[in-house]
């Protein structure tokens, strides 16, 4: 099912991971070991974003930060974005991050 994300412009890799960070499946231009590393990174990063959102919520006393919906990190020529237990490696010059995020959000509810 998650393979259909590769049909979105600019998506190079998509991976799914378990709640403990273990790699479930992935598709795209990385080998399986690299995909497992990407999955573990996404899992760890998700927890960090959750921790930071908790703190932002605590310090600002504002609702709406938690639970975080996902995250995006932009590099010079590559972006990584994640929602729920899915993560995508994206070429931002060819992709609409909004479209990728929307597609991931839809798939994460299946």
């Amino acid at each position: 099912m998650i393979k259909r994300l590769l049909a979105v412009d600019g998506v190079l890799v998509v991976c799914q991971f378990r709640d403990d960070g273990a790699f479930i499946e992935g598709f795209g231009m990385l080998d399986e070991e690299q995909m497992a590393s990407l999955a573990m990174f996404a899992h760890d990063y998700k927890r960090i974003v959750q921790g930071n959102a908790d703190q932002l919520s605590m310090f600002t006393q504002m609702k709406g930060w938690t639970p975080p919906g996902g995250w995006v990190v932009h590099g010079q020529s590559m972006s990584v974005c994640s929602i729920a237990n899915l993560v995508c490696l994206v070429n931002p010059s060819e992709a609409s991050i909004t479209e990728v995020m929307q597609e991931m959000k839809e798939l994460s509810t299946w």
């Binding site: 760890d44 990063y45 927890r47 960090i48 921790g51 930071n52 908790d54 703190q55 605590m58």
Partner: peptide, 19 residues
């Protein structure tokens, strides 16, 4: 409670960074 939230968040980060 707040101290626990902050310390837990940093522990998670540092754990990943060390890896």
């Amino acid at each position: 409670r707040q101290a626990s939230i902050m310390c837990r968040a940093t522990t998670m980060s540092v754990h990943m960074q060390s890896g």
